[in-house]
Protein backbone atom coordinates (compact mmCIF):
# COMPACT_ATOMS: atom_id res chain seq x y z
CA UNK A 1 0.00 0.00 0.00
CA UNK A 2 1.47 3.41 -0.98
CA UNK A 3 2.33 5.83 1.77
CA UNK A 4 -0.28 8.61 2.14
CA UNK A 5 0.80 11.85 0.50
CA UNK A 6 2.18 14.73 2.59
CA UNK A 7 0.81 17.09 -0.02
CA UNK A 8 -1.97 16.25 -2.41
CA UNK A 9 -3.01 18.78 -5.04
CA UNK A 10 -6.29 18.00 -6.81
CA UNK A 11 -7.73 19.96 -9.72
CA UNK A 12 -6.00 23.20 -8.62
CA UNK A 13 -7.05 26.36 -10.42
CA UNK A 14 -5.24 29.61 -9.65
CA UNK A 15 -5.78 33.18 -10.75
CA UNK A 16 -3.96 36.53 -10.91
CA UNK A 17 -6.87 38.94 -10.92
CA UNK A 18 -9.08 37.63 -13.72
CA UNK A 19 -6.31 35.74 -15.48
CA UNK A 20 -6.37 32.02 -14.88
CA UNK A 21 -2.86 30.54 -14.60
CA UNK A 22 -3.40 26.96 -13.39
CA UNK A 23 -6.04 24.76 -14.99
CA UNK A 24 -6.98 21.77 -12.89
CA UNK A 25 -3.51 20.77 -11.83
CA UNK A 26 -3.02 17.60 -9.77
CA UNK A 27 0.10 16.22 -8.15
CA UNK A 28 1.24 14.64 -4.93
CA UNK A 29 4.34 14.60 -2.78
CA UNK A 30 4.99 11.72 -0.36
CA UNK A 31 6.90 12.12 2.89
CA UNK A 32 10.65 12.01 2.40
CA UNK A 33 10.54 12.58 -1.35
CA UNK A 34 12.21 15.17 -3.54
CA UNK A 35 9.75 16.04 -6.27
CA UNK A 36 10.72 18.30 -9.16
CA UNK A 37 8.40 20.39 -11.27
CA UNK A 38 9.93 21.45 -14.57
CA UNK A 39 8.49 23.48 -17.39
CA UNK A 40 9.03 26.59 -19.49
CA UNK A 41 8.81 30.17 -18.24
CA UNK A 42 5.25 31.22 -17.61
CA UNK A 43 3.94 27.67 -17.25
CA UNK A 44 2.72 28.38 -13.72
CA UNK A 45 5.49 26.80 -11.62
CA UNK A 46 5.90 29.75 -9.28
CA UNK A 47 2.13 30.16 -9.11
CA UNK A 48 1.81 26.56 -7.92
CA UNK A 49 4.18 27.27 -5.01
CA UNK A 50 2.42 30.56 -4.21
CA UNK A 51 -0.93 28.75 -4.20
CA UNK A 52 0.39 26.21 -1.69
CA UNK A 53 1.59 29.11 0.53
CA UNK A 54 -1.77 30.91 0.32
CA UNK A 55 -0.38 33.85 -1.65
CA UNK A 56 -2.68 33.65 -4.68
CA UNK A 57 -6.40 33.18 -5.11
CA UNK A 58 -7.10 29.55 -5.96
CA UNK A 59 -9.80 26.91 -5.91
CA UNK A 60 -10.70 23.50 -7.23
CA UNK A 61 -12.55 22.80 -10.44
CA UNK A 62 -15.91 21.53 -9.28
CA UNK A 63 -15.51 22.71 -5.67
CA UNK A 64 -13.96 21.17 -2.56
CA UNK A 65 -10.43 21.61 -1.28
CA UNK A 66 -7.68 21.67 -3.93
CA UNK A 67 -4.79 21.47 -1.49
CA UNK A 68 -4.51 18.78 1.16
CA UNK A 69 -1.52 18.90 3.48
CA UNK A 70 -1.24 15.94 5.82
CA UNK A 71 -4.89 15.23 5.04
CA UNK A 72 -6.10 18.70 6.01
CA UNK A 73 -7.15 21.40 3.53
CA UNK A 74 -4.88 24.45 3.05
CA UNK A 75 -7.38 26.36 0.89
CA UNK A 76 -8.20 29.82 2.22
CA UNK A 77 -5.60 29.70 4.98
CA UNK A 78 -3.33 32.71 5.50
CA UNK A 79 0.39 32.38 4.66
CA UNK A 80 1.47 32.89 8.29
CA UNK A 81 -0.77 29.99 9.38
CA UNK A 82 0.47 27.74 6.57
CA UNK A 83 4.06 28.45 7.65
CA UNK A 84 3.10 27.60 11.21
CA UNK A 85 1.88 24.24 9.88
CA UNK A 86 5.44 23.34 8.90
CA UNK A 87 5.72 24.39 5.25
CA UNK A 88 8.48 26.82 4.23
CA UNK A 89 9.11 28.54 0.91
CA UNK A 90 12.47 29.63 -0.46
CA UNK A 91 11.25 32.12 -3.05
CA UNK A 92 12.66 32.89 -6.45
CA UNK A 93 15.62 35.26 -6.16
CA UNK A 94 16.09 34.38 -2.45
CA UNK A 95 14.44 37.61 -1.22
CA UNK A 96 16.50 37.90 1.93
CA UNK A 97 15.82 40.99 4.04
CA UNK A 98 18.42 43.32 2.49
CA UNK A 99 19.06 45.73 5.36
CA UNK A 100 19.31 43.04 8.01
CA UNK A 101 22.45 41.10 8.81
CA UNK A 102 22.87 37.49 7.84
CA UNK A 103 22.37 36.51 11.48
CA UNK A 104 19.21 38.61 11.89
CA UNK A 105 17.77 37.10 8.70
CA UNK A 106 18.31 33.64 10.15
CA UNK A 107 16.93 34.52 13.58
CA UNK A 108 13.86 35.95 11.90
CA UNK A 109 13.39 32.65 10.08
CA UNK A 110 13.04 31.14 13.54
CA UNK A 111 10.29 33.61 14.43
CA UNK A 112 7.80 30.88 15.27
CA UNK A 113 10.17 28.90 17.51
CA UNK A 114 9.20 28.90 21.14
CA UNK A 115 12.12 30.65 22.80
CA UNK A 116 15.54 32.19 22.45
CA UNK A 117 17.39 28.99 23.40
CA UNK A 118 15.65 27.01 20.71
CA UNK A 119 16.36 29.73 18.14
CA UNK A 120 20.01 29.63 19.16
CA UNK A 121 20.14 25.85 18.67
CA UNK A 122 18.48 26.13 15.25
CA UNK A 123 20.97 28.88 14.33
CA UNK A 124 23.93 26.67 15.19
CA UNK A 125 22.51 23.79 13.15
CA UNK A 126 21.97 25.97 10.10
CA UNK A 127 25.44 27.53 10.36
CA UNK A 128 26.92 24.04 10.60
CA UNK A 129 25.06 23.08 7.46
CA UNK A 130 26.19 26.19 5.55
CA UNK A 131 29.66 27.08 6.88
CA UNK A 132 29.82 29.91 4.34
CA UNK A 133 27.07 31.70 6.25
CA UNK A 134 29.01 31.35 9.48
CA UNK A 135 31.72 33.55 7.96
CA UNK A 136 29.14 36.20 7.03
CA UNK A 137 26.97 36.41 10.15
CA UNK A 138 27.59 40.10 10.81
CA UNK A 139 27.31 41.20 7.20
CA UNK A 140 24.20 42.97 5.86
CA UNK A 141 22.41 40.57 3.52
CA UNK A 142 22.49 43.06 0.65
CA UNK A 143 26.29 42.88 0.53
CA UNK A 144 26.38 39.09 0.11
CA UNK A 145 26.86 37.31 -3.24
CA UNK A 146 23.96 35.71 -5.11
CA UNK A 147 24.95 32.22 -4.02
CA UNK A 148 25.36 33.27 -0.41
CA UNK A 149 21.97 34.94 -0.49
CA UNK A 150 20.46 31.72 -1.81
CA UNK A 151 22.09 29.77 1.04
CA UNK A 152 20.82 32.38 3.45
CA UNK A 153 17.28 32.07 2.13
CA UNK A 154 17.47 28.29 2.53
CA UNK A 155 18.93 28.66 6.00
CA UNK A 156 16.20 31.15 6.93
CA UNK A 157 13.54 28.68 5.78
CA UNK A 158 15.17 25.84 7.75
CA UNK A 159 15.31 27.96 10.92
CA UNK A 160 11.59 27.41 11.41
CA UNK A 161 12.19 23.61 11.46
CA UNK A 162 9.75 22.85 8.64
CA UNK A 163 8.71 19.35 7.52
CA UNK A 164 8.14 20.38 3.96
CA UNK A 165 10.36 22.71 1.94
CA UNK A 166 9.33 24.45 -1.29
CA UNK A 167 12.17 25.74 -3.46
CA UNK A 168 11.60 28.14 -6.35
CA UNK A 169 14.49 28.07 -8.82
CA UNK A 170 17.27 27.92 -6.25
CA UNK A 171 19.93 27.92 -9.00
CA UNK A 172 18.66 31.08 -10.71
CA UNK A 173 21.57 33.33 -11.72
CA UNK A 174 24.23 31.18 -10.03
CA UNK A 175 27.42 29.92 -11.67
CA UNK A 176 27.74 26.12 -12.10
CA UNK A 177 29.96 25.55 -9.08
CA UNK A 178 27.57 27.39 -6.76
CA UNK A 179 24.64 25.60 -8.38
CA UNK A 180 26.06 22.20 -7.46
CA UNK A 181 26.82 23.43 -3.93
CA UNK A 182 23.18 24.48 -3.56
CA UNK A 183 21.91 21.18 -4.96
CA UNK A 184 24.16 19.22 -2.63
CA UNK A 185 22.66 21.25 0.19
CA UNK A 186 19.16 20.31 -0.91
CA UNK A 187 20.13 16.65 -1.02
CA UNK A 188 21.57 16.83 2.50
CA UNK A 189 18.43 18.51 3.76
CA UNK A 190 16.34 15.74 2.20
CA UNK A 191 18.54 13.03 3.73
CA UNK A 192 17.80 14.55 7.12
CA UNK A 193 14.15 13.74 6.55
CA UNK A 194 12.71 16.87 4.95
CA UNK A 195 10.29 16.51 2.07
CA UNK A 196 11.15 18.79 -0.86
CA UNK A 197 9.14 20.21 -3.74
CA UNK A 198 11.52 21.80 -6.22
CA UNK A 199 10.74 24.08 -9.15
CA UNK A 200 13.71 24.38 -11.48
CA UNK A 201 14.84 25.41 -14.96
CA UNK A 202 18.11 23.48 -14.75
CA UNK A 203 16.33 20.29 -15.74
CA UNK A 204 19.19 17.77 -15.65
CA UNK A 205 20.33 18.84 -12.22
CA UNK A 206 16.80 18.80 -10.87
CA UNK A 207 15.70 15.46 -12.26
CA UNK A 208 18.91 13.68 -11.29
CA UNK A 209 18.36 14.37 -7.64
CA UNK A 210 14.57 13.94 -7.60
CA UNK A 211 12.62 10.83 -6.85
CA UNK A 212 9.84 11.93 -9.13
CA UNK A 213 9.17 14.76 -11.53
CA UNK A 214 6.29 16.54 -13.21
CA UNK A 215 6.34 18.47 -16.46
CA UNK A 216 4.13 21.54 -16.21
CA UNK A 217 3.06 23.32 -19.41
CA UNK A 218 0.42 26.03 -19.87
CA UNK A 219 -0.93 25.57 -16.37
CA UNK A 220 -1.48 21.81 -16.74
CA UNK A 221 0.54 18.70 -15.90
CA UNK A 222 1.81 17.32 -19.19
CA UNK A 223 3.48 14.18 -17.80
CA UNK A 224 4.91 12.67 -14.67
CA UNK A 225 7.34 9.86 -13.93
CA UNK A 226 10.41 9.10 -11.85
CA UNK A 227 13.32 11.51 -12.26
CA UNK A 228 15.39 8.93 -14.14
CA UNK A 229 12.54 8.05 -16.51
CA UNK A 230 11.95 11.69 -17.35
CA UNK A 231 15.63 12.18 -18.09
CA UNK A 232 15.41 9.34 -20.64
CA UNK A 233 12.08 10.45 -22.08
CA UNK A 234 12.16 11.56 -25.73
CA UNK A 235 9.79 14.48 -25.25
CA UNK A 236 11.69 15.82 -22.24
CA UNK A 237 14.98 15.40 -24.10
CA UNK A 238 13.71 17.33 -27.08
CA UNK A 239 11.90 20.09 -25.25
CA UNK A 240 14.13 20.64 -22.22
CA UNK A 241 17.51 19.03 -22.68
CA UNK A 242 18.11 20.21 -26.27
CA UNK A 243 19.45 16.80 -27.27
Amino acid sequence: MPEPALLRVEGLEAFYGDVQVLWGLSLSVRPGEVVAVIGPNGAGKTTLLKAIMGLVRCGRAGGGPALLYDGRPLDGKRPEDIVAGGIALVPEGARVFPEMTCRDNLLLGGYLLRDRAERQRALEEVLAMFPRLAERVRQPAKTMSGGERQMLAMGRALMGRPRFLLLDEPSLGLHPLMTSTIFQGIQRINQQGLTVLLVEQKVTFALKMSHRGYVLENGRIKMSASGQELLRDDYVKRAYLAV
Partner: peptide, 27 residues
Protein backbone atom coordinates in the same frame (compact mmCIF):
# COMPACT_ATOMS: atom_id res chain seq x y z
CA UNK B 1 14.56 47.51 16.72
CA UNK B 2 17.96 45.92 16.23
CA UNK B 3 18.40 43.49 19.09
CA UNK B 4 15.05 41.91 19.83
CA UNK B 5 12.92 39.41 18.00
CA UNK B 6 10.07 41.92 17.96
CA UNK B 7 12.37 44.53 16.43
CA UNK B 8 13.53 42.08 13.79
CA UNK B 9 9.88 41.37 12.96
CA UNK B 10 9.24 45.12 12.57
CA UNK B 11 12.28 45.53 10.31
CA UNK B 12 11.40 42.48 8.23
CA UNK B 13 7.85 43.71 7.74
CA UNK B 14 9.08 47.08 6.54
CA UNK B 15 11.58 45.53 4.11
CA UNK B 16 9.46 42.79 2.54
CA UNK B 17 5.92 42.39 3.81
CA UNK B 18 5.18 39.17 1.92
CA UNK B 19 8.44 37.51 3.00
CA UNK B 20 7.66 38.54 6.58
CA UNK B 21 4.33 36.72 6.38
CA UNK B 22 6.17 33.71 4.95
CA UNK B 23 8.32 33.71 8.08
CA UNK B 24 5.18 33.38 10.17
CA UNK B 25 4.83 37.05 11.17
CA UNK B 26 1.32 38.42 11.58
CA UNK B 27 1.98 41.71 9.81
Amino acid sequence: LHHSQMGRAIQATSQDREMARLSGIKV
